[in-house]
């Protein structure tokens, strides 16, 4: 009888321990840690800055503000305590209509997109504009649209969709920079050929070029500020191509599982990575991938 009680006591304790681990390691991080990492300089939440401020140096507004506040605190801690809090207390709470808020946030998102496009027009390489509202992935260089690729399907994580617009604005206010990429296709596929020894050998060489086949496309891009972009082709994959894509997916799943197990062992879990998955035609996906630079910058419109 005593052993029976002991068994159940131990079992209950184990269950409690497991619940504690689950709560702290698995549930709490997902619920409490925001996966949307705020962009380093938030030029959206502040009052609208001069668009070409980067060139004229006017964009230092927010920086100057912080300098001022720092100086203020250094000079004397008493002065900042003056009537500012009292003023805010006296102000009546503002209630905005849903429509007004919606309009403002849509405008801010558009403003953010245009600001990013304008700042990227200074760059020498291509950049990507992922417009999930109009379902277009646009290649652009120097402010000139090179190619619009129609997005056939979009899947966005709830970790992005369920956040308030304020948080999204802070996240998308700056272009995302590519960290690393896993892809089934190569950027450049060089064929190495030895020079013929004489004209006879040169004439023997096949004069009609055989176009090289490109494998089916599956691209996974990890960006700074915690964003994962998956680009897939709309055409169905078969045979060796399908096996290749599946093996990449499996290896990614394995990597993720290993990470999860390590997190469980160390009782430390990072915020999850929000994912955007888009489907393009194979030709568009290849064009996009081959045109984009290794240190790709991407502007996102949600």
């Amino acid at each position: 009888m005593a052993r029976k009680y002991l068994f159940w006591t131990v079992t209950i304790l184990l269950v409690l321990l497991a619940s504690y681990v689950l709560t702290t390691v698995v549930i709490k991080p997902v619920v409490s840690k925001s996966p949307l990492y705020v962009a380093p300089v938030n030029n959206v939440a502040d009052s609208p800055a001069e668009p070409n401020a980067k060139k004229t140096g006017k964009d230092e507004g927010p920086v100057k503000k912080t300098e001022k506040t720092e100086k203020g605190t250094k000079k004397g801690a008493k002065k900042p305590e003056t009537k500012v809090p009292a003023k805010t207390e006296n102000l009546e709470p503002v209630v905005n209509s849903k429509e007004d808020l919606q309009t403002l946030y849509e405008l801010k998102k558009q403003e953010s997109l245009l600001k990013s496009r304008y700042s990227l027009s200074d760059e020498d390489s291509c950049y990507l504009i992922l417009d999930l509202v109009q379902k277009v992935a646009r290649l652009e260089m120097k402010g000139i649209p090179l190619q619009d690729c129609e997005i056939k399907n979009i899947i966005v994580s709830n970790s992005i969709l369920k956040y308030h617009d304020e948080n999204l604005l802070k996240w998308i206010s700056q272009p995302f920079v590519l960290k690393n990429v896993v892809s089934t296709i190569e950027r450049v596929q060089f064929l190495v050929k030895n020079a013929p020894k004489d004209t006879i050998e040169a004439n023997k060489a096949d004069a009609i070029p055989v176009p090289r086949r490109t494998e089916d496309v599956f691209i996974l891009m990890n960006f700074e500020r915690n964003l994962q972009l998956v680009i897939q082709q709309s055409e169905l994959s078969e045979g060796a191509d399908k096996a290749r894509i599946d093996s990449i997916k499996q290896s990614l799943f394995k990597k993720e599982t290993d990470k999860s197990i390590k997190a469980l062992v160390n009782l430390k879990r990072e915020a999850i990575v929000p994912q955007i998955s888009i489907t393009l035609s194979k030709a568009d996906a290849i064009t996009l991938y081959r045109a984009l630079p290794q240190r790709l910058k991407m502007v996102l419109r949600l």
Binding site: V94, L101, K108, Y163
Partner: peptide, 18 residues
């Protein structure tokens, strides 16, 4: 989800400015 700021003062002015 996430932080939500309270009401926005002068929202009409902000809309116009945007």
């Amino acid at each position: 989800l996430g932080e939500k700021t309270g009401g926005i003062r002068n929202i009409d002015r902000q809309i116009q400015s945007s």
